[in-house]
């Protein structure tokens, strides 16, 4: 099949850009650890309240782990527990969340915390809170009439 010389150049340029681009994403994900939230742990969605760590939602200091705190959220239509939480500035926090009913989102606006909460699954993401301020948590997956009223708040303080 004949291909125009300029088209060959164009496609080779495109392919090279593609390889650079995919390598960047790959190295960032698997070498630097910037993987999307993909936790494989499961939980019985009807027994969330009785199952650790979801029996104690909120912020907990932990010892001997790669992170300093665990921040546990339980979502249900149309609220998060806790409804507000304070995190010390600079803390490395593992956010752990699940839902008791339908699919919800957990997005901390202005940060990279953004994950889907699906019944039966635990979602996790580890991050460091290194900027002071108030962060709004919104549900970003449609979950019913009160979807736009579903929110929580993280306050990052010294």
């Amino acid at each position: 099949m004949h291909m125009h010389k300029l088209e060959k150049i164009w496609l080779i340029f495109g392919l090279a850009a593609l390889i650079v681009f995919l390598s960047t994403i790959g190295v960032s994900a698997f070498y630097l650890g910037n993987k999307p939230p993909s936790c494989l742990t499961t939980v019985d969605p009807e027994k969330v309240d009785q199952t650790a760590p979801f029996n104690k939602p909120g912020l907990h200091k932990v010892e001997g782990k790669d992170w300093d705190y665990e921040l546990v959220f339980v979502a249900q239509a149309f609220a998060y527990t806790p409804t507000q939480v304070t995190v010390p500035l600079g803390a490395k926090v593992k956010v752990i969340a699940t839902t008791k009913d339908v699919v919800h989102g957990l997005e901390v606006a202005g940060t990279n915390i953004n994950m889907m909460l699906e019944p039966g699954y635990v979602s996790e993401y580890t991050t460091t809170f290194d900027k002071e301020g108030e962060y709004l948590i919104v549900c970003n997956e449609y979950c019913g009439t009160g979807h736009h009223l579903m929110s929580s708040k993280i306050e990052v303080k010294k």
Binding site: A29, F30, K35, P36, P37, S38, C39, L40, T41, T42, N114, M115, M116, L117, E118, Y121, V122, S123, E124
Partner: peptide, 8 residues
Amino acid sequence: LTEPGIDP
């Protein structure tokens, strides 16, 4: 991409 339960 942001869903649990799928290997990265």
